[in-house]
């Protein structure tokens, strides 16, 4: 049923996949937040929804189609953005609405369609089978490894595109790589929090971490910690109170952010942060 709570049997799978996804979302999301592209994860998720609907329509496992659609549409629009000098927020809006629009039409055309087929992609699912857990761990491992070897170049391109180019860094290739990694991250995360809530995992832990951290390293560690804490406690709350896990995860992440704001506003946190004047 919709808004399913975590069952006792599904807790280990939910925790393992949840921790892997939260680590991945916090790191990939940090680069998007720093590029002022916070809603890009949301846009990718909505275009992935179009892919899910297409997969259901043609009868192929929807997540792989979603992955291909999300990455290809994001890369294509990024290329168009560079060529025609369209602003980033406009690209996000185009990606988001087109993906959703295409998805809705394909869903309406699918014969014998039942809402249950897409609800887990829209709102996340409490049940992750072993095969999916392995796939999530493998994809998370691959992306985190790529990021470990390329983060300096991606960070420099994020910090100053002009200076990074002038020092010989292939800035455009790094942007495409980041978009591709964000696309895969979105698709595998859809299973945990769903299309509609995915940007919360990309944005909230990072914005909270930036309120405390003084360095990039601290920001990454804090953001990962917040994301894992939100995911684990969200899953436990879902089991304990029999409420939807995606909502629990997002609300815990939001509570961390609000708590951080209060700590910052009351002067408990002295470090310069995102709200500093």
């Amino acid at each position: 049923m919709t808004f399913e709570a975590v069952s006792y049997e599904s807790i280990p799978h939910a925790l393992i996949s949840g921790i892997a996804i939260s680590l991945l979302c916090s790191v990939v999301g940090l680069f998007l937040v720093l590029r002022k592209f916070s809603l890009f994860g949301d846009a990718l998720a909505h275009s992935a929804f179009g892919g899910v609907a297409f997969g259901l329509f043609i009868g192929i496992y929807p997540l792989w189609i979603a992955c291909a659609v999300a990455i290809l549409s994001a890369l294509g629009l990024t290329k168009i953005r560079q060529k025609f000098d369209i602003s980033g927020d406009a690209i996000v809006a185009i990606l988001l609405s087109t993906g959703l629009g295409a998805g809705v039409i394909l869903v309406s055309l699918t014969e014998d369609f039942e809402f249950h087929d897409i609800e887990e992609f829209l709102f996340g699912s409490a049940i992750v089978d072993t095969q999916n857990v392995v796939a999530i761990l493998a994809m998370a491992g691959i992306i985190l490894t790529i990021l470990f070897f390329t983060y300096k170049k991606i960070l420099y391109s994020t910090f100053s595109e002009e200076q990074a180019k002038a020092s010989g860094i292939p800035v455009e290739k790094m942007s495409y790589l980041l978009i591709a990694m964000a696309g895969v991250t979105v698709v595998i995360s859809m299973q945990l929090v769903g299309v509609l809530l995915i940007s919360a995992l990309f944005v909230l832990p990072n914005v909270s971490a930036m309120l405390y951290a003084r360095s990039f390293k601290q920001t990454v560690i804090l953001s990962m910690s917040f994301a894992v804490f939100a995911t684990v406690s969200g899953i436990i709350m879902s089991y304990q109170f029999e409420i939807a896990q995606a909502g629990c995860i997002v609300l815990v992440a939001a509570a961390i952010f609000i708590g951080s704001l209060v700590a910052k506003g009351s002067g408990l946190v002295k470090t310069a942060g995102i709200l500093a004047k």
């Binding site: 720093l34 300096k152 200076q163 002038a166 951290a213 360095s215 390293k217 310069a272 942060g273």
Partner: peptide, 30 residues
């Protein structure tokens, strides 16, 4: 050749909330 050329731009466009220390900014080079 760019590895032997240092570039200092016209004016730094630094987002004041960018979470990086001076040491980290210097370490971003290849």
């Amino acid at each position: 050749y760019l590895s032997q050329v240092g570039f200092v731009p016209q004016k730094p466009v630094v987002d004041r909330n960018f979470p990086a220390t001076i040491r980290e900014v210097l370490s971003m080079s290849q």
